[in-house]
Amino acid sequence: MSADQEKLIAELVEKGLAGDMDPINAIEDRVLRSKAKAALAKAKRAAKVAAASAPADEKLAEEPPADTTPSDNPNQKFGKMIEDKFPGSLGADLNDTHIQLKPDNWFDIATWLKSEPSLHFDSLQCQTGMDLGDNILEARYNFHSMTHDHKIEIRIAVTRDKPNIPSIEQIWRIGDWFERETYDMFGFHFDGHRDHRRMLLPEDWEGYPLRKDYEVQETYHGIVVPKVKEGWE
């Protein structure tokens, strides 16, 4: 890579970090554009690591005293009920969009979510994973109740070194396939799952594709995997 190109990419990365993606998207040359985007992604990751290590207690000191009036939002309401019944299980403060839980007694909480008559979340709508960068993987569950017609979202964050979450496939039977797929794509490990193997990719595939730093393998059983064929680009 020539010196001018490096300087240009550094400028574009500066602009991209400030939130302006137009200069990068306007580049005609495909190779240069992809190099710029890769450099931007790397810079963003580095910036996030630096920000996470900044002290978090500053934020806490600024927060106003907690609002004790009950809110109508299901995530807030049920998050409070979960905290009352299973103290210490919330991983973050209550908010309107989701309930953050710790993975420790997730199985008991899940059983209670389904069996408690006023909640009765009998349908696990969607279960997915997210790679948040910073060595953190998060599993997200969307629940819905057919009887009461309310829904919540639950998120459980784990680290890459120990991605263990209790499995809930015995409570909602669709959890069986959803969890196998999340394991296949992200590399979580669902403790207690009776049939823990890959779902979509072949059994001998290496790596977990939906992680942000996934590098595709070179060959699979002798067949070349990546996109380069002779005469392309």
Binding site: Q125, C126, T128, I174, L210
Partner: peptide, 30 residues
């Protein structure tokens, strides 16, 4: 179902498609 997570850029951060046929096929074993 579509679960979309956005981080403010023109490119989605994660799109998960929850397909109805996936759940329908899982019931075949039973």
């Amino acid at each position: 179902g579509f679960y979309i997570e956005s981080d403010g850029s023109p490119i989605p951060s994660r799109v998960k498609m929850r397909s109805p046929a996936f759940t329908a096929l899982s019931v075949l074993g039973e």
